[in-house]
Nucleic acid binder design. Structure first.
Lengths: 227, 227
DNA sequence: TTCATATTCTATTGATTGGTAGAATATTGA
DNA sequence: TCAATATTCTACCAATCAATAGAATATGAA
């Protein structure tokens, strides 16, 4: 009967162990954005192609990613949106329980957040603010990524066009900026630069992948037909 | 700037790696019930005391458990309720993506679920059924565990008193049985025995720890004072 | 067919992990 | 203080893992 309890936990451990390596977590974080071929994933994580391939095989064996061949390239993608939630939860638990993780997270964005004014906006807080039309939502990812999917009602202003901010963004309303996820540095930088311009900006704590994985709606830009 | 991105993911990997071993997952599952001394944890997982202690040290280093000394015993407990959610997500992802995990899960309870009639009740389904007073909730854990905490309105009928079911439970209303968690076999067995008595019983998919970790209310039996 | 490209496979290395047994430490009670 | 108990520490071996380089495979184009 419960003979195979051990087997069962061993099998669950396969999934956890696949997440137990920094390089693989980084690959997964990149895959949370969009599917990609090995070469792209390797350079995004500064791994050799061979090494990236090995790790991707492990992720595949653990059932976390699937592969699809297109021409001479193999495209990898997450098998399941819940993997994003899983990584988010690992991050939360790590941040609140591992002193070192917390230290790293705050150092990663050499935070000058004097008064907690840079306090990020949580997903729930963002949702209710959006429902009340209380904030302007700003997507600072490259235009190409924005076109594929973005949060409902977001304005796209990529980092290299941030100097146009005063023409596009309201001075009187609070702005919430987001990018690819909690460890994407784009929105951090954007917030600092926009504040220097006198705008009231905060950062969304998460990013597009988490929003989508939570089952919330995203908008797609239709290149040809008017929606 | 993002120099320490790698360091960061490596640190997150520490937490994931701590979950990447069947014995440690089993220890954590036991700890999700209640705190316990090493000896108890060792026998619950059929590990040697020394071995269990080692694994507990690793969990401690990863920030997942804390220890407290009481007399000559060390009591371990989870640092964070979210660890239960984390394990639940690992299980979900494993079940839906790892063919083998699924096979093991269904074999663990040599399921004679002919018509999917044994289909378990999800947390959300249970909540709305309870709100409507549509079900009787049955806790089949030992009385001692029931006293510490149980789901609101639950009736306690431990496995060894299951033959009193017809006196205590309604024949006309659906019954939902639960125990310690998704891998606790008590409720499985209870469902089968109660069905043999002609009662309409289903199993709650999760257990008390998951319910509590989701932030839902639990009841405590006050041994001395009235409510 | 042959060549170039993208990826995976294989073999090897050094580092880390899990299990085990026995020694060492801390606490309680005599 | 001493003995008994609970737990942790240390040392060891076998197994697994991560990284690397080079060979092998698969695809598309010439």
């Amino acid at each position: 009967m419960s003979i195979s309890r051990h087997e069962l936990f061993d099998t669950l451990a396969i999934v956890a162990r696949a997440l137990g390596n920094g390089n693989r977590l980084e690959l997964l974080e990149r895959l949370a954005q969009a599917e990609a071929p090995v070469e792209t994933l390797a350079s995004a994580t500064s791994l050799s192609v061979g090494n990236a391939s090995q790790h991707l095989q492990q992720l595949r064996r653990a059932g976390l990613v699937t592969a699809r061949r297109e021409g001479r390239q193999m495209f990898y993608r997450l098998t399941d949106e819940r993997i994003i939630l899983l990584m988010g939860l690992v991050r939360e638990v790590a941040e609140s329980n591992l002193a070192e993780a917390e230290r790293l997270v705050s150092r990663l964005f050499d935070d000058p957040d004097a008064e907690g004014a840079l306090e990020p906006v949580s997903r729930d807080a963002l949702r209710s603010a959006l429902e009340q039309g209380a904030v302007t939502l700003l997507d600072v990812r490259p235009e190409q990524e924005f076109r594929v999917a973005h949060l409902p009602g977001a304005i796209n202003l990529p980092m290299d066009r941030l100097d146009q901010a005063l023409e596009v963004l309201p001075r009187d309303q609070e702005i919430v900026a987001y990018c690819r996820g909690p460890y994407c540095v784009l929105s951090h930088e954007a917030v600092q630069r926009l504040r220097a311009l006198g705008l009231r900006v905060r950062r969304f704590q998460e990013g597009l992948p988490e929003w989508r994985a939570a089952g919330l709606p995203v908008e797609h830009e239709q290149p040809m037909m008017g929606q």
